[in-house]
């Protein structure tokens, strides 16, 4: 009796394992086929691939040593990059918060607003900053405004989504208490919602500022201002040592940004 049950259990276990193994092999096989297809179908001239290490080290050699020439211009461009990121983050706050408010299940005035809010967040998030920049350069011409708008439009989705989630996670009991005092909607928000989402707000904005610093280094490649403009210029004129200096400058900028963020985090939160 016991033996029989044991056998049965074994058999079921076996079959389950076999099914799982089958799925595993199928997934592996499918992956392999996709990879083979990708390798054979992709539009690559293979001799270039074998030559690539040479080319890359050649480029590296041309970059070395970095040249200090034009350092002032680079630093000015770096500052411009920081300005773009900071102003854009600052402006985003005013646009993202109302969107977060209508996109949060528990604060949205009605269904239509909820879907409008979600639509704004999704469209903002699924278009990359540099594609936004492309669009705004076409509209407003090359320059920092296009860059700032690109960062703003991408950040709305990021800050709005995370803030919306923060609003959805609040404790609703204080909200109820404020309603019971006869407070209007605006006062309920100011007293029961704002204090609860404040820490999340600071954390999210600081995080996005850090990301925006990185993102604004590339805006210039499509003409939207910042360090990318002179990087593009240096590459176009084959000024490789200057390119190296700019790359180092970008690393320094990103590391400084990271240091500032972690300082802010420890001070504010």
């Amino acid at each position: 009796m016991v033996d029989h049950a044991q056998q049965l259990a074994d058999r079921i276990w076996q079959r389950y394992d076999r099914k799982q193994r089958l799925i595993r092999y199928a997934v592996l096989l499918a992956t392999l086929m996709v990879v083979v297809w990708a390798v054979r179908d992709i539009d690559i001239f293979w001799p270039w691939v074998w030559d690539a290490p040479n080319q890359i080290s050649g480029l590296g050699a041309r970059m070395w040593p970095p040249s200090a020439e034009g350092l002032n211009g680079i630093i000015a461009a770096l500052i411009e990059t920081v300005h773009i990121a900071t102003l854009a983050t600052f402006l985003t706050i005013f646009l993202a918060l109302p969107v977060a408010y209508i996109a949060a299940q528990n604060t949205t005035p009605n269904r239509a607003c909820l879907w409008l809010g979600r639509f704004i967040l999704v469209s903002s998030r699924s278009v990359n900053t540099i594609i936004w920049a492309l669009l705004f350069v076409a509209i407003f011409g090359p320059g920092v405004l296009a860059g700032i708008l690109a960062i703003v439009f991408r950040s709305i989705g990021f800050i709005g989504k995370l803030m919306g989630e923060a609003i959805e996670e609040i404790d609703r009991r204080p909200v109820e208490a404020m309603e019971a005092t006869g407070a209007s909607k605006a006062k309920v928000i100011a007293y029961a919602i704002v204090p609860q989402v404040m820490p999340a707000f600071f954390a999210i904005v600081i995080l996005r500022w850090d990301i925006n610093i990185r993102e604004s280094t590339v805006l210039g490649l499509v003409g939207a201002g910042g360090i990318g403009v002179i990087l593009q210029g240096a590459i176009d004129t084959f000024a490789w040592p200057t390119v190296a200096t700019i790359m180092i400058a970008i690393i320094v900028l990103v590391l400084i940004g990271e240091a500032v963020t972690s300082l802010l985090r420890s001070k504010v939160l």
Partner: peptide
């Protein structure tokens, strides 16, 4: 109104 869980504005 007074609540069981106090419902204060904690922060």
């Amino acid at each position: 109104m007074v609540f069981q869980g106090f419902n204060l504005l904690d922060r």
